[in-house]
């Protein structure tokens, strides 16, 4: 991607440095070059125009394939109050400001709405210029609402389609004075994740367990713990089908699918999962899919890049041994079972 470092100072007051006539703009908050979950979708939903703000913005911007026009704004801290204050003049001309409902997005969006005097449409899955679709009640209900003026919108990560690839975008560097307009908490440090406890919706690698992983009479909970540990050893998070969560072998927060979490990993490894529509529809667009299943013609195996016809429990045990995972692992940390 070509990066013409064309810098311009931001005039105060409305309009801002953004050319007039930008209807929709994605605002993506990044930390040390890391894009938040759902950034790509949000940019795609905004029609390709994105403002990347935070630290390591350029590097992050490079990862936004679906962007066709990019602005980057380097800020040392991303405290919502100060950030909202700083961005307000820049965004006041944009009718629809979109943010991913990632932690930083959820932080910033309401503050922007207040400061820009707009309605917040939180938790959207689809945005049109005059209509936005929100989902409620754990994605069981979707509500179509009208856009009757300038709005701020947040999008659930992992619900949109896989963002398309646009022509390499131009990057415009913005600079704003680091005016500390707001009262924010002081960020002490950022702890790196243990993959097996990462939120599914954010996980880049997921290992999924289905009914086929639990032989009749076996202790499903123990099996799923082993799955979680093997996942951990592979730098992945553990997910499951509804049959598994209904059986209480894994917590509902780990259920992938229409009535569970919608995920969007790069890698999905399915153990004993048939690939029912309600499950697969929550899978997003993984680049690499592996299915371990005794049935070579089940949907999951058919949609997989690598289908392995084998006894899932046995394969899992084998993997556990190879990866040096104890066969009687500790329970998942409390936090996981309560993960939002």
């Amino acid at each position: 991607m070509t990066v013409p470092a064309e810098s311009m100072p931001a005039p105060n007051g409305p309009g801002g440095p953004l050319p007039a006539g930008i209807r929709a703009l994605a605002v993506v908050v990044v930390r040390d070059g890391q894009l938040p979950a759902g950034a790509g979708e949000t940019v795609a939903e905004a029609g390709g125009a994105a403002l990347v703000v935070g630290s390591g913005t350029r590097e992050a911007a490079g990862g936004l394939d679906s962007a066709n026009r990019l602005w980057v704004l380097e800020r040392s801290s991303v405290g919502p109050a100060a950030l909202a204050g700083a961005l307000a003049p820049v965004l006041s001309g944009v009718d629809m400001v979109l943010l991913p409902a990632s932690p930083d997005g959820r932080d910033l969006a309401p503050r922007l709405a207040v400061i820009l005097g707009r309605v917040l449409l939180a938790g959207a899955v689809r945005c049109g210029s005059d209509e936005v679709e929100l989902t409620r009640l754990d994605d069981r209900l979707s509500v179509r609402v009208a856009v009757d003026g300038p709005v701020v919108v947040t999008l659930w990560p992992g619900r949109g389609g896989s963002p398309g690839r646009a022509a390499p975008a131009e990057v415009t560097v913005l600079t704003l004075p680091e005016l500390d307009a707001g009262h924010d908490a002081e960020s002490v440090r950022v702890l790196q994740p243990e993959p097996s406890t990462a939120d599914l919706a954010e996980a880049r690698r997921i290992v999924g367990g289905g009914a086929g992983l639990v032989p009749a009479g076996a202790d499903g909970v123990a099996v799923m713990r082993l799955l979680a540990d093997v996942a951990g050893a592979l730098g992945a998070s553990a997910g499951a089908t509804r049959v598994v969560t209904d059986a209480g072998w894994m917590t509902y927060e780990r259920q992938i699918g229409t009535t569970g979490v919608a995920v969007n990993p790069q890698l999905y490894v399915a153990f004993g999962i048939s690939g029912a529509a309600q499950h697969v529809s929550g899978l997003g667009a993984p680049e690499h899919v592996v299915s371990v299943n005794t049935d070579p013609s089940c949907p999951m195996t058919r949609m997989a890049d690598l289908g392995i016809v084998a006894d899932a429990p046995a394969v899992l045990a084998e993997l556990a041994e190879r990866l040096g995972v104890a066969a009687t692992p500790a329970a998942l940390p409390e936090e996981v079972s309560h993960a939002g």
């Binding site: 890698l267 005794t294 690598l306 392995i308 084998a310 394969v315």
Partner: peptide, 27 residues
Amino acid sequence: TPPTVLGPLAPARAADELLRYLRRHGY
């Protein structure tokens, strides 16, 4: 990679294939 279906495989072979695949794709 064009979809491939292997097997039926013994657990050990299955594990080999799975890990090889992951390695090939840099996981």
